[in-house]
Amino acid sequence: MKELRRLAEGGSSDAVDELVQRAAEREDLSELRRLADRGSATASDQLIETATELDDLEELRRLAVGGNLTAAAEQLAELGAE
């Protein structure tokens, strides 16, 4: 993981994708959040998906306020309707 993070920080999109995949498999919201906050659209999408699967309304609200308004707001609306 340490080497993947180093490569990702150096701009390797393959390393970022691998980190996103591993974090998603572990349902690691903090890792997905870190990658998303660094600008990875893939991580942002996966974070929304994983937070939705875990019914993590707090994370979805944070994402909606932080700029992922449309996707996170849609998921919040769906969870609220259930």
Rank of each mutant, 00 (worst) to 15 (best):
M1S: 11
K2E: 14
K2G: 15
K2T: 11
E3D: 10
E3G: 05
R5F: 12
R5V: 14
R6F: 08
R6A: 12
L7I: 04
L7Q: 08
L7C: 07
E9K: 15
E9A: 11
G10L: 02
S13C: 10
S13I: 04
D14P: 07
A15L: 00
A15S: 04
V16L: 15
E18S: 13
E18D: 12
L19E: 09
L19P: 03
L19W: 03
R22G: 08
A23F: 15
R26A: 12
E27S: 14
D28V: 07
D28N: 11
L29C: 06
R33Q: 12
R34M: 00
A36R: 02
A36E: 00
D37C: 09
R38F: 10
R38Y: 09
R38D: 14
R38G: 14
S40L: 06
A41L: 09
A41C: 12
A41Q: 13
A41P: 06
S44T: 11
D45Y: 12
D45F: 12
D45V: 15
Q46S: 03
L47H: 00
L47N: 00
E49R: 02
T50R: 07
T50K: 08
T50Y: 06
A51S: 06
A51D: 01
T52L: 07
T52Q: 02
L54G: 01
L57T: 05
E58Y: 10
E59V: 06
E59P: 04
L60Q: 03
L60C: 10
R61M: 03
R62H: 04
R62Q: 03
R62L: 05
L63Q: 02
A64V: 06
A64S: 05
N68W: 13
L69C: 11
T70L: 15
T70K: 13
T70Y: 10
A71M: 09
A72N: 01
A73I: 11
A73L: 03
E74I: 06
Q75Y: 05
E78L: 01
L79H: 03
G80T: 02
A81E: 06
E82L: 04
E82Y: 02
